[in-house]
Design a binder for these strands. Structure first.
Lengths: 151, 151
DNA sequence: ATTAATACTTGACAAAAGCAAGTAATTAAT
DNA sequence: ATTAATTACTTGCTTTTGTCAAGTATTAAT
């Protein structure tokens, strides 16, 4: 297959890095940092989670995560209460406001994607999603678990 | 096609953001920040460029860019000299060391991609590159120029 | 019981990035 | 032609983001 195939993959990665960078800016304009948005997403996806659980996905510095959570609590998006089963840990949940904000971020994100593919007809849109699924499938073949990187 | 198609696209974006985040960490371990690496790439791609030209691609804060370039100059990777044709601007180039470092970053990146797809056979690897090309083609359909975002 | 590991916090600090004001050179406007 | 506006870049100041290390409390391991 040759080196030029890898170069094509790298070209895509550069392209997508840039595209995603623009996304990130847009998320930030929503008033939350990307990290905050990720945390909100995580807590939404798995209620009654803990900082350690969140960090298995986000892999931030523990101290930093602790502070960001603190900030989200002081902004009334999250609640934290000592776990009954493990008093070292704190159970984290979204507040009502937190759920509302999650919904906003979520629909905002959907709108953005929709607008970014607005020139595609529905056939092409489905094709795009299929291509993406296939890429993810191929890339995940390489990494049985968790350690997947692409560069 | 329905909302679930957009959700699939968003799922891929999340997946890829994470994958690219891991890439970034790896680049950083090379001793340069991602921003520095991008600048080095740009100067390599277009010699005799200027800060403004670089920033058309990278879209950083001007002041920040100015400082990063300064740092790269003090590390002997770049040179800067007043443009003869426009004395406001500075012509930027790689030094010999800069070229060497570019080559290192470049081959490192190729190696990383290769290792991340090492489980694919050559047929699948070509398929992957084709899928990526097609995605890029579809996404670029949406934006005649420069303003492409995907989220 | 003692030691080690886990969950989290806090203080101090460093790096990355953004904002705003400024200089000098060039281009556009009248 | 002179003034005004724009462009290219720099610098000081601040904020945001992230790291490191030390510490507390709790739980698990031996």
């Amino acid at each position: 297959m040759g080196l030029e195939t890898i170069d094509r993959i790298r070209a895509f990665n550069r392209y997508y890095v840039r595209a995603i960078g623009l996304l990130e800016n847009t998320v930030v304009k929503s008033g939350y940092t990307l990290t905050e948005a990720h945390i909100i997403n995580e807590v939404n996806a798995t209620p009654n989670t803990t900082a350690t659980e969140i960090n298995k996905k986000l892999k931030l510095d523990e101290g930093y995560l602790s502070r960001v959570i603190k900030k989200l609590i002081s902004n009334s998006l999250l609640t934290k209460s000592r776990s009954a089963t493990d008093k070292r840990a704190y159970v984290i949940n979204l507040t009502e406001k937190g759920r509302t904000e999650y919904q906003k971020l979520d629909s905002r994100s959907t709108e953005l994607v929709a607008s970014n593919i607005s020139n595609l007809d529905s056939k092409e849109t489905v094709e795009l999603a299929n291509l993406m699924d296939r890429i993810q499938f191929l890339l995940e073949k390489n990494t049985s678990l968790e350690k997947d990187i692409i560069s």
